[in-house]
Write a protein that binds this DNA or RNA. Structure first.
Length: 402
RNA sequence: GUGGGCGUAGCUCAGUCGGUUAGAGCAUCAGGUUGUGGUUCUGAGGGUCGUGGGUUCGAUCCCCAUCGCCCACCCCA
């Protein structure tokens, strides 16, 4: 027997109903915010991710599904959505046109990791990217949009925000932090490694000993330039104004290299260790990193599988018909009726004549609203017998009126 | 890559301190006399006890290996 690859799942009913519900809800809200759908290829040139996500990140370093195709191109299954969209934005020359554009997307992403709760090798994200808008209100808008989505889906969460600074203030903070870290003795192995790869992440270490050593570490929020600082204040005041509760987490670092200024993460406490359900922020420099004209941008992505456990689905309703025969002679007219009715609504049937009791059981299991049967009496009178499975009302009607 | 846990019916799991026909619940199917569902009653089908090897008179149980799944670390959605 051949099974699906590790970390890759089939999605079947009723699980995929939840998936569709999430996508539909997100899509509707994103449209209200002026975003339009973009679809980019799942396979892209490896260089795209190396340059955008960053060589130093784990994603590029060890988690990419990378291979050579038959034309000897170095390609990758996309590990995240933003890079491809930025590529498309530039390829369409929207950067040169100086247009502001808002896109949303959803689909599979691939990372070669050990699967665990809330982590798959093929997983799905819904996300949105806004290009050309430097105003911090756009950052706030995106956070409020996610808030609207989670409220619509009935998902509880907490929001953490941070500012990562900009090219004016981040580099000097970073060197300051690194020299602080150099002065500290006894950091854990991971942190020693992070000192060079991603020093800010040291602040986020879960090792208690490290945390005590880091008590006096400099924090980026205390070293923001005046622009970043006032933007961060504006962001917070907008969130306050709209009743969006948040916690400033000065140690919040987005995993991907391209973020600047606003960084945020929506977290759920109900889904295991992988608790980030949405994350995003501003990435004003990514477009130029990918050879486009400098264009400010901000976006987010949410992990659909992580959401699916939390979604409260609306109650499903009985829908459609079950149409079946009580005797051999009725099979043909049943089959015809079924095909006719399927032009209008959901119809299930049985190819075998069975007892009324069996058909009712089947109809109930399929969760349709009406059970329709044709037997000897109905054939003789050219009628159908129809029962509403909710109200339990039943009656006959002429077959041509059905 | 590193830890820990687990593989017995379609699903969720019992169980055998190693002993003869391996169990339950749910699900499925068939019945409870004439054509009435979601509740109930009766019955049936369905398992090479993950795979391979070893120990033993005898292994689903003990040992080794292997594969797979889950959870956690790392990192992220």
């Amino acid at each position: 027997m051949i099974n699906a690859l590790r970390g890759m799942k089939d999605t079947l009913f009723p699980h995929n109903e939840v998936y569709m519900y999430v996508i539909d809800t997100c899509t509707k809200i994103a449209r209200n915010y002026g975003f339009s759908l973009i679809e980019t290829p799942i396979l892209e040139e490896t260089a795209l991710f190396k340059r955008s996500v960053g060589e130093s990140s784990d994603i590029v370093g060890k988690e990419m599904y990378q291979f050579r195709d038959k034309g000897d191109n170095d390609v990758c299954l996309r590990p995240e959505g933003t890079a491809g969209i930025v590529r498309a934005f530039i390829q369409e020359k929207y950067d040169k046109a100086g247009l502001s554009k808002r896109f949303f997307y959803h689909g599979p992403m691939f990372r070669y990791e050990r699967p665990q709760k809330g982590r798959l090798r093929q997983f799905h994200q819904f996300g949105a990217e806004s290009f050309g808008e430097a105003n911090v209100r756009e950052d706030a808008t995106i956070i409020l949009m996610i808030k609207a989505i989670f409220e619509a889906l009935g998902i509880g969460y907490t929001l953490e925000i941070n500012s990562l600074g900009c090219p004016a203030c981040m580099p000097s903070y970073r060197t300051g932090l690194v020299s602080f870290l150099e002065s500290v003795e006894g950091l854990c192995e991971d942190c020693e490694r992070r000192k060079t790869t991603n020093p800010i992440r040291v602040l986020d270490c879960k090792n208690e000993h490290c945390q005590t050593l880091l008590q006096n570490a400099p924090l980026i929020v205390d070293h923001l330039c005046s622009t970043c600082k006032s933007d961060f204040e504006t962001l917070k005041s907008i969130l306050d104004h709209f009743g969006m509760a948040y916690r400033v987490n000065p140690k919040l670092v987005r995993g991907l290299d391209y973020y600047s200024k606003t960084a945020f993460e929506f977290v759920s406490s109900e889904i295991g260790a992988q608790s980030a359900i949405a994350g995003g922020g501003r990435y004003d420099r990514l477009v130029e990193f990918l050879d486009g004209k400098p264009t400010p941008a901000v976006g987010f992505a949410m992990g659909i599988e992580r959401l699916m456990d939390l979604v409260k689905m609306p109650e499903s309703k009985r829908e459609g018909y079950y149409i079946a025969a009580l005797c051999e002679e009725a099979l043909e007219s049943v089959y015809t009726l079924v095909q006719q009715k399927r032009a209008i609504t959901k119809v299930l049937t049985s190819y075998e004549p069975k007892s009324l009791k069996n058909h009712l059981k089947a109809a109930d299991k399929f969760y349709v609203k009406f059970c329709v049967c044709i037997g000897e009496d109905e054939l003789a009178n050219q009628t159908v017998w129809i029962k509403d499975l909710e109200s339990k009302e039943e009656h006959h009607m002429p077959i041509e009126n059905f």
